[in-house]
Amino acid sequence: MSDKLERYRSKRDPKRTPEPVPDAPSASPGGDAFVIQEHHARSLHWDLRLERDGVLVSWAVPKGLPADPGTNHLAVRTEDHPMEYLTFHGEIPKGEYGGGTMTIWDTGTYETEKWSDREVKFVLRGDRSAGRFVLFRTRDKNWMIHRMGDAVRDPFPALEPMLPAERARLPKDPSAYAFEFAWGGRRLLVPIDGGRTDAAREHPWLRELAESFGSRSAVLDGELATLGGAEILLFYDLLYDDGRSLVEEPYTARRAALEALGLSNAHWQTAPSWPGEAGPVRQAAREQGLPGVLAKRLDSPYEPGSSKAWLFIPA
C-alpha cells in the first residue's frame, strides 16, 4: 500500500515547522470532513482540503472559492495533507515550505457526488462556504473550481465615481449634509476581490491593503492627495462590502460601513467627515490652503457621474 503522506513529509522537517508530521494517515470519525485555510504565504491563497481515504486531498485556490457560477477560479492540486491539518493554524517559519501565516477560514463536513481523477463534485456544509462545487482538470492538467447554483453575492457596481456639482454657497440646510475637505488630489476607485486589486498595477503598495481584506470583497472610493510632502490615499466612501452592493444605501450607512473597516496605514487613511459642520469645516479648509469643501447629502445613494446630492463649495 502506497504512503499517501510521503510527499508531504518530504517537504517538511518537524524540527523546523509547527505543522503536524504524522507517521501514517488517520481517518476522522465521519470520514467526510473538510477545512479551508487562509494562507498568507509568498502570495495569498486559500487551501481547500477534503478528507479522502485517511488524508486531506488538497488544492491551493489563489482567489478563494468562486461566489458566482459565471466565474471559475484556478485550483492548484497540491500534496495530500494529514488529518491533523483539520485544526492546524499558526505561523510556518519564513524559509520553510509554505512559510507564512495560516488561519482556519472555514471547516465542516461535505458530501461527495462524484470523485474521479479528472472531476470532483461535492457539497460543502460549512458556515462560510456552503454550496455545491465541482473541481475539474483542464487540458493542460491544471484544475479549476466552479460554483454550481446561484451566485451568493451581488455583482460589483460599475466603477465610475460620483462627482459633485459646484456651488458658490454652502447649502441652506447644513444639518442634511456631511462636510468633508476637498483635497485637490486624484480620484481613485479601488476594487478588492480575492485579496487582490487591479489598482496595485499602478500603485504596488496597495497589494498590502488588498491582502489585508482576505476573502472580503470591497470597492472603495477615495482620493490620492499629497499631505505633508507625502502621497496618501484618503478613502471617503464604500460602494461594495463583503458580497453586498451599497450603492443604493444612504451615505450614512455607507460611511458607517467604511469606518467599521478601520483603514489606517502610512499609505492610506479614512478621510474625516463632519455631519452638519458647514462653517467650521470651510474655515479649516481655508486655513489649510485646501481647494474647498464637499457637502454630501446624508440620505443620498451613490450615483455614478455628476450628482447634485454632492456639492463642491470653494474655500
Score class of each variant (00 low, 15 high):
residue 1 M to D: 10
residue 2 S to A: 08
residue 6 E to P: 00
residue 11 K to E: 14
residue 12 R to Y: 03
residue 14 P to S: 09
residue 17 T to G: 04
residue 18 P to C: 04
residue 19 E to Q: 11
residue 24 A to V: 04
residue 27 A to S: 15
residue 27 A to V: 15
residue 27 A to F: 00
residue 32 D to K: 13
residue 32 D to F: 01
residue 34 F to I: 08
residue 40 H to R: 15
residue 46 W to T: 01
residue 46 W to H: 03
residue 50 L to T: 13
residue 51 E to H: 07
residue 54 G to D: 04
residue 54 G to S: 07
residue 56 L to H: 04
residue 56 L to Y: 10
residue 64 G to V: 07
residue 64 G to S: 10
residue 65 L to S: 04
residue 73 H to V: 09
residue 74 L to W: 09
residue 79 E to P: 03
residue 80 D to H: 13
residue 81 H to Q: 09
residue 81 H to W: 05
residue 84 E to I: 00
residue 86 L to H: 08
residue 88 F to Q: 05
residue 94 K to E: 14
residue 95 G to R: 02
residue 100 G to E: 01
residue 100 G to F: 00
residue 102 M to V: 15
residue 105 W to G: 02
residue 112 T to F: 01
residue 112 T to N: 14
residue 114 K to I: 01
residue 116 S to Q: 08
residue 120 V to P: 00
residue 128 R to T: 02
residue 135 L to E: 12
residue 138 T to I: 05
residue 139 R to L: 12
residue 144 M to W: 05
residue 145 I to D: 04
residue 146 H to M: 02
residue 146 H to R: 13
residue 155 P to S: 02
residue 158 A to G: 11
residue 158 A to I: 11
residue 162 M to C: 13
residue 163 L to T: 14
residue 164 P to W: 10
residue 166 E to F: 01
residue 167 R to S: 14
residue 169 R to V: 11
residue 170 L to H: 10
residue 181 F to K: 11
residue 182 A to L: 00
residue 182 A to Y: 00
residue 187 R to F: 00
residue 189 L to N: 09
residue 197 T to L: 02
residue 200 A to Q: 11
residue 204 P to N: 06
residue 212 S to E: 07
residue 212 S to G: 00
residue 214 G to H: 05
residue 216 R to G: 02
residue 216 R to L: 10
residue 217 S to G: 13
residue 224 L to H: 02
residue 224 L to S: 00
residue 225 A to W: 07
residue 225 A to Q: 06
residue 229 G to C: 10
residue 231 E to L: 07
residue 232 I to Q: 14
residue 232 I to G: 02
residue 235 F to Q: 06
residue 236 Y to W: 11
residue 236 Y to G: 10
residue 237 D to G: 07
residue 240 Y to Q: 05
residue 241 D to M: 09
residue 242 D to W: 02
residue 247 V to M: 13
residue 248 E to V: 01
residue 252 T to R: 15
residue 254 R to H: 06
residue 254 R to F: 07
residue 256 A to T: 15
residue 256 A to I: 09
residue 256 A to K: 13
residue 264 S to G: 01
residue 264 S to F: 00
residue 266 A to H: 07
residue 271 A to E: 11
residue 273 S to T: 13
residue 273 S to M: 14
residue 275 P to F: 07
residue 275 P to N: 07
residue 278 A to L: 08
residue 278 A to D: 15
residue 279 G to R: 15
residue 280 P to Y: 02
residue 281 V to I: 15
residue 283 Q to S: 14
residue 284 A to F: 08
residue 285 A to K: 12
residue 289 G to V: 09
residue 292 G to D: 11
residue 298 L to C: 02
residue 299 D to Y: 04
residue 300 S to V: 12
residue 300 S to E: 14
residue 302 Y to V: 12
residue 304 P to Y: 07
residue 311 L to V: 06
residue 311 L to C: 02
residue 312 F to K: 02
